[in-house]
């Protein structure tokens, strides 16, 4: 075991800001949707719109960060170990079997995470942003008679947005739970707060992984 600097400052900020915004967008969004009562419809709309703009700004910075640091490669989905990872959650985890994927600084996501996060990034979040923006600005093409951009009905937009919202909330639930399946129940949480995490030094499965060049703290 050695303590490594896994999550950089921006990454942690991005994670927690995104978490807060998605929770807040979820609460206000489902109030708009009519599922819950909390702020009152008018306030929910106001807050949802402000949070949505903040979220978009955060996304812009996050994209910039991922591209410039090359961290986006972490999310490339892979078949390798996908099955083993799934089997681990269904069987191995109960027998205290080792994690099938070794977490390293340069490969901190397991294959299931890669798949799900990539899906969120290229599918769900873009759908939410685009449908959300159309929801926000649907009036303008029609009012200015740009007929080719005219949105006849909000229904399709709203339904897409709602599907995405359900997916995000269920992701959120699963994410909270799976966060407890690290080396210890709270090790993932601590890592995302402090940036540091105790990682295994070597593993049979991941010989190919390059060794980290990050500053290393040993316990």
């Amino acid at each position: 075991m050695k303590k490594e600097y896994v999550y950089k400052a921006f990454e942690r900020f991005w994670h927690w800001a995104q978490a807060a915004l998605i929770i807040f967008l979820g609460v206000t969004g489902f109030e708009i949707h009519g599922s819950i009562r909390f702020f009152g419809f008018d306030q929910a709309v106001r807050y949802h719109n402000v949070a949505a703009i903040s979220f978009i700004i955060l996304i812009v910075f996050a994209i910039f960060w991922h591209l410039t640091t090359g961290e986006w490669r972490q999310y490339m989905p892979t078949w390798k170990n996908l099955r083993a990872q799934a089997e681990y959650y269904v069987f191995g985890i109960f027998r205290n079997a080792p994690h099938p994927t070794r977490k390293t600084v340069l490969s901190k996501l397991n294959p299931l995470q890669k798949l799900v996060y990539a899906g969120l990034k290229v599918l769900v979040i873009p759908v939410m942003v685009v449908s959300g923006l159309l929801y926000m600005f649907y009036r303008y093409p029609q009012h200015n008679e740009i007929l080719s951009l005219n949105i006849g009905s909000l229904e399709v937009i709203a339904v897409l947005h709602t599907i995405g919202a359900f997916l995000l909330v269920s992701f959120f639930i699963a994410h909270l739970y799976l966060g407890t399946t690290g080396r210890t129940v709270t090790s993932n949480l601590k890592a995302m707060i402090t940036g540091y995490e105790e990682l295994e030094e070597d593993s049979v499965d991941n010989k190919a992984q390059p060794v980290s060049h990050e500053p290393v703290l040993t316990k």
Binding site: I32, H33, G34, F41, S153, L154, E155, A158, V159, T162, I163, A165, F166
Partner: peptide
């Protein structure tokens, strides 16, 4: 027409919940 807060798609609601 779709009125936010009043309307929802029953299928999406069922599957989503």
């Amino acid at each position: 027409f779709y009125l936010p807060g009043r309307n929802y798609n029953p299928w999406v609601e069922f599957l989503g919940v």
